[in-house]
Design a protein around this nucleic acid. Structure first.
Lengths: 203, 203
DNA sequence: ATCTACATCAATGTTATTTCTTGACGCAGT
DNA sequence: ACTGCGTCAAGAAATAACATTGATGTAGAT
């Protein structure tokens, strides 16, 4: 009884998240509570490592994760951040059941709710409503990704940065600039200079 | 050819370790080189997390790991440190194939050679000599553990600390005192006072 | 009742690590 | 030659981790 309440409480942010999209029955809530497991990752800890198959779909409750690709020279290129109420996983690896080329790790101590591939399939079977919910989530992600791509191929560093602080105001002062630079695809030094330029509107 | 040499080099400390106990044939060396994989853990990174089943048997090449238990109040109790040439794993979880109640994480950037449960079984089949080697290792560990238990139930804080610096002189100045205190089961503050007392032999 | 062996909490000092900024310089494209 | 970026190295600044100390408390031994 108490234990159920505790789990329910842990899953709360996720239930809220879903219910902003669509009302849930008690059975559905219970399913979510049962199938998503809370897990804590500490700063720098890997959630997914290149070469492993992504087997968990992660919803961030608090903290912040990043997903990145290591190039052959060892440089990291950040694909996505995920802070509160974001989803993160390697979708290709997760659904294709193939080894991932990406890494996910924690920029802060982070608590996620995660569901395994197996349990997600089981969720779809037991509650087809989630087919729809996850379809909508996918659409949103797709749009965000397309926007990011567009930015990336068309904008210069300053524009990218301005767009970043508009899109992710809550991350701008929360993350080290190194990370933001890596997300934007510029050097931290150059980002530092960009910001200075802004501070002093050209004299 | 080059690649083989490189792997051989990486496995070197482990081969040495075994050969101090018993000579190895080339076939056996090759087996070890093949079945033990090098892996780097960064400071604070988990090697094993409570709830997961321990699937790797780890030999520390350089760096330092710790194994600990979290109590219900969230205090950590360090069971074991493992620096160069030590083994670390949750033996119960590893052999029983059950979820672990323990955590293992890195106190320093640490390089290990690890063999999976599956590959260890395969090693025993292919080279029964390792049955004996690991039996001896187990015996040594058992003795060390028993000694630690004895210390723990019979000695006071000062005695425990003195015994620690005698048994692990190389760790005494290498690890933060917080960690040593947690290993000894006393508070860092009290350890600090103990050390001060020693410095000034009572006036 | 008091002494010893420890604990807890809070404040402060010390050291190490991480992050940011700046300067000097290079290079490719307008 | 100028603009938009990059690289490398050095230092400054911010933050986090660790150690020490004082005040105060408690349980058990004497």
């Amino acid at each position: 009884m108490d234990k159920d309440r505790l789990l329910q409480t842990q899953a709360e942010p996720l239930l809220d998240h879903f219910q902003k999209m669509m009302p849930l029955s008690n059975t559905e809530k219970q399913l979510i509570t049962d199938l998503f497991k809370p897990r804590l990752y500490r700063k720098r800890q890997y959630v997914l490592q290149e070469g492993d198959t992504c087997n968990q779909c992660n919803f961030v409750v608090r903290g912040c994760l990043r997903m990145y690709k290591l190039d052959t020279a060892g440089n990291i290129h950040i694909i996505q951040f995920a802070s509160e109420n974001w989803w993160i996983m390697d979708i290709g690896s997760f659904h294709g059941r193939t080894p991932s080329e990406l890494n996910i790790d924690a920029l802060e101590d982070t608590m996620v709710l995660q569901i395994s591939h197996e349990n997600l399939l089981s969720l779809y079977l037991q509650a087809p409503k989630f087919d729809r919910i996850f379809r909508v989530l996918m659409e949103n992600s797709y749009v965000a990704l397309q926007k990011r791509l567009l930015q990336n191929i068309s904008a210069n560093a300053e524009e990218k940065y301005l767009s970043f602080i508009q899109t992710y105001p809550h991350l701008t002062n929360r993350l080290p600039q190194t990370q933001i630079a890596s997300f934007l695809g510029i050097t931290p030094e150059f980002l530092s200079r960009l910001r200075n330029r802004q501070a002093k509107p050209k004299s």
